[in-house]
Design a binder for these strands. Sequence first.
DNA 1: CATGAATGAGGTTTCATTCAT
DNA 2: GATGAATGAAACCTCATTCAT
Lengths: 210, 210, 210, 210
Amino acid sequence: MQIEPLPRQRRKEARPAEIIEAALLLFHQKGYSATKLDDIARFAGVTKGTVYLYFSSKEALFKAAILETIQPNLDRIEEAVMSSQASATQRLKTAMSSWASSMNECKGSITKLMIAEAGNFPELSDFYIETVVKRSRKLLIHLIQAGIDSGEFRPIDADMLARTIFSPILLTSIWRHTYAKLDPITYSLNQLSDFHLDIIFNGIALSEQS
Amino acid sequence: MQIEPLPRQRRKEARPAEIIEAALLLFHQKGYSATKLDDIARFAGVTKGTVYLYFSSKEALFKAAILETIQPNLDRIEEAVMSSQASATQRLKTAMSSWASSMNECKGSITKLMIAEAGNFPELSDFYIETVVKRSRKLLIHLIQAGIDSGEFRPIDADMLARTIFSPILLTSIWRHTYAKLDPITYSLNQLSDFHLDIIFNGIALSEQS
Amino acid sequence: MQIEPLPRQRRKEARPAEIIEAALLLFHQKGYSATKLDDIARFAGVTKGTVYLYFSSKEALFKAAILETIQPNLDRIEEAVMSSQASATQRLKTAMSSWASSMNECKGSITKLMIAEAGNFPELSDFYIETVVKRSRKLLIHLIQAGIDSGEFRPIDADMLARTIFSPILLTSIWRHTYAKLDPITYSLNQLSDFHLDIIFNGIALSEQS
Amino acid sequence: MQIEPLPRQRRKEARPAEIIEAALLLFHQKGYSATKLDDIARFAGVTKGTVYLYFSSKEALFKAAILETIQPNLDRIEEAVMSSQASATQRLKTAMSSWASSMNECKGSITKLMIAEAGNFPELSDFYIETVVKRSRKLLIHLIQAGIDSGEFRPIDADMLARTIFSPILLTSIWRHTYAKLDPITYSLNQLSDFHLDIIFNGIALSEQS
DNA sequence: CATGAATGAGGTTTCATTCAT
DNA sequence: GATGAATGAAACCTCATTCAT
């Protein structure tokens, strides 16, 4: 039985995006090294050769996939927050809600990919830390400090709190994409964010703890 | 006739442990796939053949490394907590402190490794989730529920809180082992744990937030 | 409605020749295998597809390039010599000078290409040896024998001398196109030919050598 | 029918030399690019992996093959000549005879390989030209000049003569390894060398030619 | 005619695994 | 037990060739 080869599709416009999407999904599922270019190609509905038409190497594809995914979020990060004139508390809620939403939409978790492959892509990690992580944290620290200055929050280490506030959302995003079946999570990142912020603002103790 | 030197004899006992230590370190740094058996062997001071003397395959070595590292912590998890008769608040602090300490000591982060390789080692992930993650969380939920029942804490979703309480420690442990140079963290996991618990108990708001 | 520009129309006629020229140059520089059709096309100012419009395969292009280059020289080879009624000495000088000139003009060295690729193109080599090499040598042998018969030259192995006379011109042609930068040659093939013939006729010894 | 794998041979000492010999032969026959590593390995009686045990890449193997073959001849080049106290004529004969012999023994022709691949291995070509070609020519020029100075030879361009004297031997060596079947050569390089030197010393003309 | 996106066979290279010593 | 040379399957990548436009 002879296999009829598929008619050649010609869709130059869409190709790179399709390949990147397939690559991201597989890198995320199996890790960079364990993902074969053949799989990426098949998943994207093309052949290996086509992948190399748009990306010069597997490494270049990985970097492009990460950067393409990060880029559209970069600008969105600050807008919802810096412009607002509301209270620090309110702006903190808005910012976290915005982040939670954008992470919810994403099919994979860039955070997870970057953590897993940091050792193998040092320059990319550097870019990620400087451009995404530190920039986001700086924003959060700014809001926290504003709240302290305005008397909304008690004096507290803003850097540590910023990292702390982020952690549940980041880790849950990773977790959900990693252990979806084995340890399902029933709430959304937005719910989690609201939940955590409420506790951070008000605490859980019914009487003061030392 | 030459007498077999003692040091070599002595090392024999330690071989498997040395290999596992080398493997863990490299798996952690570069990921499972990207780590070569040659590197592990060289790092452990033996040859590739010797690795196969103790572990039947790379996969078996990975599993052994994970399990060997988890095992000693498994028992320690419950002891410090379940036995105590103190308040829920106090026992929560003790438990978190104990976890933070054990994570601080560890050279790598099993959590990170498991996240990165979950897709490639489903049975191992299953074991890890059931035996380590869920068991630990169950304990935490138990303490939280005890606090709610005793009137120490206001009524709250115990599962969500358990995940939330854990997140900063887990993510920071991962972070520290991943971005040590690029984004150094100045405090210890114990300090972080104390910091977060204080906020969770007491909140940061100076007046009630909605 | 746009009128088809003339320059483009005009080039059409020249396309195959332009492609052959590009191909010869690159085959010569990098060898047959190492030369990519993409490079040939780019060098000829067309696309890969166009090359296949005129040549059915890379191999066909190689053969065509060799044959097209050889052909015009084939006829020229004999004319200047056979017709002449001059002395063998003189006709030898004329023949060598004619060859040297035709090799000087050529951008590459067919000789080099044929040597390098003989193993991969046996039929082409066969054609080249029979049609070019042996035919030329036969001519040379004829002239040498005429000189011996006429008493101009002492009796000598005509075949060996024919090969010997040719060698410096051929090798220098190859050399010049191969090591132009690393080992530049300051004289022309015609000068070399005159130089060598003078020595062959008269020797360099001031007294008879055994 | 199951193919019984050959028992593994262990001959570390001989391996590199065997691989180089196979590589040289095939590079020579088909050119560098057209030679597959699989072929080299099979020809050397090993598998591809073994080749990479000793040479880090195909390119490295090529360079090693060239250098290993050149090296032993390098020293031999000068010894037979520089030490002698004989006449320039005699020393010239000795030198050429020595070169002809060493080229006769060699299975392939490094000269041919270097010519064919010069464009793709510029540094190697540089080394070859400087270390082998120019050094040999310098020696020849030295001998010619000595003959002129001593009144054995008439004044003549020594560089051009040096290149001329070499040409027949070099080109015939190439020719013999390239067109062995199609255009067989019946005499040895030593015979050719003697023949050419006799002509160069004494000429072929029975009376003085202008 | 001309294009260039797409193909896929085939090349180079890597590396987990084996096994004679 | 321990070694490390040898293996070969499988990965990444190239490029001659095709074909829809």
